[in-house]
Design a protein around this nucleic acid. Structure first.
Lengths: 141, 141
DNA sequence: TATTGTTATACTCTATAACTATA
DNA sequence: TATAGTTATAGAGTATAACAATA
């Protein structure tokens, strides 16, 4: 049974803490968050399209196109035509992009990982492991 | 003991899910997120200063001053001089601000609360209840 | 017609810098 | 000098609208 007042309380507290953590993340040294997300995504899936990236991140294709343009200008991402569909563009990391990802991990990811390791107790880390996929599901709503 | 690789994995997954939920929150009808946060905060503490609000949200006083200016222009927040310190400004909700908060709750908070109630199972909600204060602590780092 | 992507433009959010007024 | 707040300006992040190319 879900208690509506419990969910209401969780909602308000969740919104406040999420917004604050994201501000803190943005303030931490590293690539802009949209760029960092693309670097991680390309590293994980190898090759994909702008539309897929936009859908996965929950932004408009126009917004993702701009992020990709920035990464391309930095030489971190490369485009290739999709051989089976002339409308699509296949994206992948360049060698410099892979190196940039290493640097991103060393900076922002490392900060967050340290915060999790040092400031959370085992029960909180276990709770986080359960909460994260739940949050992703909410984001997809 | 905290396993470093566990924390590293949590960090990357956490960043991605948080950013996506915040984007989704921003896209949901209601006040801009900084304004909504102030409405909630003033409702909770009654009266406070710009500096306190900025510290609580983790933004610069200049940024908070702008948010307050917007809310004041909308007639949702009122200023009063601090009788004991001429530099400070005491902020509080107007009647219209309290009404606006009701509307905010009806819209964005209700969306999030519904998502929590309908899409999360009891174990996930319990995990969220533990994870939220942990996230707040990380934001304060 | 529908889909993929681009370009142009504007608004939101937050920061830094430079300032005023009060303590 | 230090603190609370303001104003000006810039940059990051995202959206909508209008368009071109391909399916």
């Amino acid at each position: 049974m879900s208690d509506p007042s419990e969910s209401a309380r969780l909602a308000v507290d969740l919104r406040q803490s999420l917004v604050r953590v994201v501000r803190r993340l943005r303030a931490t040294k590293g690539f802009p968050l949209p760029q960092a997300a693309v670097l991680h995504r390309l590293d994980r899936v190898g090759t994909t399209s702008i539309g897929e990236l936009a859908a996965h991140e929950g932004v408009r294709p126009q917004s993702m196109a701009q992020t990709i343009g920035e990464l391309e200008a930095l030489g971190l991402v490369q485009r290739a035509p999709d051989p089976t569909d002339g409308r699509r563009v296949l994206l992948s990391l360049t060698a410099a992009g892979a190196a940039a990802l290493v640097e991103e991990r060393r900076q922002r990811d490392d900060w967050l990982a340290s915060a999790i390791a040092e400031q959370l107790d085992p029960a909180e880390r276990a709770a986080l492991a359960i909460a994260i996929p739940a949050l992703s599901r909410i984001a997809d709503t």
